[in-house]
Each structure stands twice: as C-alpha cells, then as structure tokens.
Design a binder for these strands. Structure first.
Lengths: 167, 167
DNA sequence: CTTAATTTTCAAAAATTATTGAAAGTTTAG
DNA sequence: CTAAACTTTCAATAATTTTTGAAAATTAAG
C-alpha cells in the first residue's frame, strides 16, 4: 500500500471510528488528518485535503478546540491560523475519556440517582424499577471509573502487569 | 417522583444512552422497557407503551435478538410471542461489550494493521503515518482487551484488584 | 481610519437515518 | 386444507443530522 492510499484509509477509518467516541465524521476526519500531518495545517489545507466546505471546517475545528484536542498556532508574519492536534495517543485517549464522561455518563448517573430515590409505593413494578435502576447505576459508576481512571494510569506498571495477565 | 414519571425517565435516559453503545433510540427504549418489566411483553404491549409502530417494534426486537440481549418466550395456549431481556446488568454489559468489539473494534484493528504494514518509502510523511498508526493500534488493542476481558471477569480477582487500585 | 485577509455564523439544502403502515409471509388451530 | 392470528418486509415518508456557501463579523496591516 502506498502513502496516498494508506492516508485515505487512515482518515476514513478514524472517521467511522468517530461514532464510537461520539463525534461526527468531519470532526473525526479533521482530527485524523492533523494527527498524521507532520506540521500544523490551515483551514484551506484541511478543506482541500478532505474536500469539505469552509463553514464545515470552521465549525468542526472549533468543536475540536472545545474538546481540547486541537490547538491554534500562529506563525510570525502570517495572518492565518494553523491547527495542530495532540499527537500523543495516550493523552488523546485521556482527553476523550474525560470529555465523554463529563458530557454523557455523568448526566446519566445523575438521572439514575434521581430515579432510584423515587417514591416507593410498594408495588412489584416499582420494586423492579428501583432494583434495576440501582444495578445500572452501579455499572455506570464502574464504567465511568474504568474509563476515566484506567486511561489515566497507562504508565503504571502494576496496571500494565495486571492487564498483561488477562490479555 | 411517582412510578409513571420514573419509568418514562428511565426509558428515555436509556434511550439516549443508546448512542453510547451504538444502537438506535427505539431499540434502546424497547430494551429499557423490558428491563424494568416484571414479566415478558408482547409486540402489542411494546407498541402501546412506547407509542411506536408495529413495523418499528418488529425490526428493533429482531435486532435485539440478534445482539443476544432479548429472547422470545412462548406461553402455552397462546399464539403470540412474549419478549424478555437479560435482567442481569453484568451479563448485559458483557454481551454488549463483546458485540461492540466484534462489530466495530475488530475491523478497525484489522485496518490499522494493514496500514501499518504499508510500503515505507522513506519520506517523513510516511514515517509519521506509520508511527501514529502503530500507536493507535496499540491503544485500540488495549481498549479492546479492557472492554472484552475485564467486563467478562467481574468476579475475577485480577479485575477487582485493578478496579480497587484506581477507584 | 480603511482595506484586505481570514474566520464565524446560520438559513437553506442535501444526506442520512428512523419510522410508518399496509401488503406479504408465516404459523398454528381446527 | 382454510382461516385467523400473528410477524416480517419494505417502499414511502418523516425526522434528524450534516453540509454548504454567502453574508456578517473579526482581526491586523497600512
């Protein structure tokens, strides 16, 4: 496989992977492009490479900046902005995990807590609802811990050793 | 909060959570409904409770069955099918993790492996692409292990030890 | 200040995804 | 077998999400 094909494949793979971490295709593709670029890119370059509009580029770059994944860089003597992404995959995973937790899991946990403290009218249906809500709440809390903490501790040798054991 | 409100909240929370585990809203809501129901439900009951069409119900129940999350039950002397879902949240998590790995992560890992074995033409751009692809591949493999193995082994002391360490 | 370069916004259009409902298909009872 | 009870299919429609592109806003240079 030659460079151009590999590059396209990388970008489109990452793009479809975007759904896994809950961001849209263009956003994921922009990030992918920056991730394998040897230097920061301008809006024009991103538009050209991905064949997307200016507005689309602007909005998605903005969101990536909001996520903390992309940063602006300025070159002396130039007006336009250059965009760069976090290149360390561990750090990237950490940011994504933290953001997903904050944006999606935390609100769910909050709602499940509200539900589990509902008025218990003594009916079987209510008992089941409370029971299942609490079970799910516990799972959500564990999942959240795994997501936000495990990713944070990649360099820990104990975690690594334990992971290798079960791999 | 009274039963009806709590139930609605549970179903809609789970419905929006559906995007996290990559299934559509109706599918997630049907599963949620079954999950808190004290007994298996028929197509009619699901349609009525969720206010969705027969076709929609049929298609999404089918998908849930394909995922291995919902099972058919037959009552003696009755023609219609009753649907039941896995009630154990741990088991549910296990099934979902396994399916997502199979459907989404495995194909990505395969593609990343293909890319990382691309022809190295010695350019800086190619070097960067290979380097980043390999880093991502390693992360994807670790994430997949955590997802499929750790979730599988809740009673496993290694997983428990890992969790306690970081919690 | 004025002007040109650049980015942002947002209504409209396009693309994608989900839902409906009626017809076709299947299954079981009699 | 036939008929009734039920489930599945799928083309049409609706809802949602994404993308566009041109106008407005912003920024910096002269």
């Amino acid at each position: 496989m030659e460079y151009q094909e590999a590059k396209q494949k990388f970008i489109s793979t990452w793009g479809s992977l975007g759904t896994i971490w809950g961001i849209n295709k263009a956003m994921a593709q922009i990030q992918a492009l920056l991730f394998i670029s040897t230097e920061p890119l301008t809006t024009e370059q991103i538009m050209e490479e991905l064949q997307i509009s200016r507005g689309n580029t602007s909005m998605n770059v903005r969101q990536l900046i909001d996520w903390g994944i992309v940063t602006k860089e300025l070159k002396v003597g130039e007006r336009k902005e250059y965009y760069n992404t976090e290149k360390d995959v561990q750090e990237l995973a950490r940011i994504i995990a933290k953001e997903r937790s904050r944006r999606e899991i935390q609100p769910v946990i909050k709602t499940l807590q509200d539900i589990s403290s509902m008025n218990n009218d003594g009916s079987a249906a209510t008992a089941e609802l409370i029971k299942q809500t609490q079970a799910l709440l516990e799972l959500a809390e564990t999942a959240d811990t795994v997501l936000t903490k495990v990713v944070n501790h990649k360099q820990n040798w104990v975690s690594n050793a334990l992971l290798k054991m079960i791999k």
